[in-house]
Simulated scan of single mutants.
Amino acid sequence: MELELTELTVRIKGRALVDRLSLRAGAGEVVGLVGPNGSGKSTALRCVYGALRPISGTVLAGGEDLRALPLRERARRVAALTQDGSVDLDFTVEEVVALGRAPHQRGTQALSVREQGLVRAAMRRLDLLALADRGVLTLSGGERQRVLVARALVQEPEIIVLDEPTNHLDIRHQIELLSLLRGTRATVLVVLHDLNLAAAACDRIGVLRGGALVAAGTPREVLTAELVADVFKVAARIVPHPETGGPQLLYTLNPSV
């Protein structure tokens, strides 16, 4: 399902956190949002999953305004993994993953055989089967992050938005998660700080600064030494990945940039 942000603007106390942002993610694409701290990435995601209402602009999913949809229908279409996503009650891992089916159920309806299979498959894909009966409050930050990703997959959304999903994950699980996102049929909008991970995982990248979009395109088009110096204030040499040919950044600390 196509996701389109059109002229999206969010202002708080007169300051534009997001300023006329227009960005499109085609059906099944993985689109990354990158930019310095405070550039509006998380704010843009909050508009997509409904936590914030922009003062102007629209968020369209398959051509429909998400704000016009009933909450349950929106939850069926869009799954969100936020920076502050947490589980405060000590449910088991399997119970938390199963909560992804909530938008599709009524009341205390039991999971169907198919839904139970979805839960087990998601836990297998996120390397969680051995933790199925553990309480989530006993898990490490990285393990808990994988639980929340599994919950999002069980939701069977058409659009997945993730805000820094690789936080707390070791390098193996970072790579596995991003590979998994590329393998879903969902449209993915993901905020990443690691530009090399973004280059490897994303079909296209949007670069934000001061709430505005300053560049958008394929990783090869966007991640240039000039842009990295201008937006991130660091010097970087861009070299091709030896296997994929995609751009990889080698950073140099340079106070003069």
Rank of each mutant, 00 (worst) to 15 (best):
M1Q: 10
E2G: 13
T6P: 05
E7A: 15
T9A: 12
V10K: 09
I12D: 13
I12R: 15
L17H: 11
R20E: 15
V30M: 06
V31P: 02
V34F: 02
N37T: 07
N37P: 02
K41P: 04
L45M: 07
C47P: 06
Y49E: 06
L52H: 07
T58P: 06
V59P: 01
L71G: 11
A75D: 11
V78F: 07
Q83N: 10
D84T: 09
D84W: 00
G85L: 03
L89Q: 12
L89P: 00
A98Q: 02
Q105R: 15
Q105I: 12
G107V: 11
Q109Y: 00
S112I: 09
V113A: 15
R114M: 12
L118R: 14
M123Q: 10
M123L: 12
R124H: 13
L129I: 10
L129Y: 00
R134N: 07
G135Q: 06
L137G: 07
S140M: 04
R144K: 13
L148V: 03
R151F: 06
E156A: 14
V161R: 03
E164K: 02
P165L: 05
H168W: 11
L169E: 11
L180C: 13
L181K: 05
R182N: 12
V188Q: 02
V188H: 01
L195C: 01
D203C: 00
I205S: 05
G206E: 08
R209G: 11
G210W: 02
G211Q: 10
L213F: 05
L213V: 11
E221M: 01
A229D: 05
V234D: 02
A236N: 03
R237F: 10
I238E: 03
I238N: 04
V239P: 02
P240A: 05
H241R: 06
P242F: 07
E243M: 13
E243H: 13
G246V: 03
Y251Q: 05
T252D: 13
P255A: 14
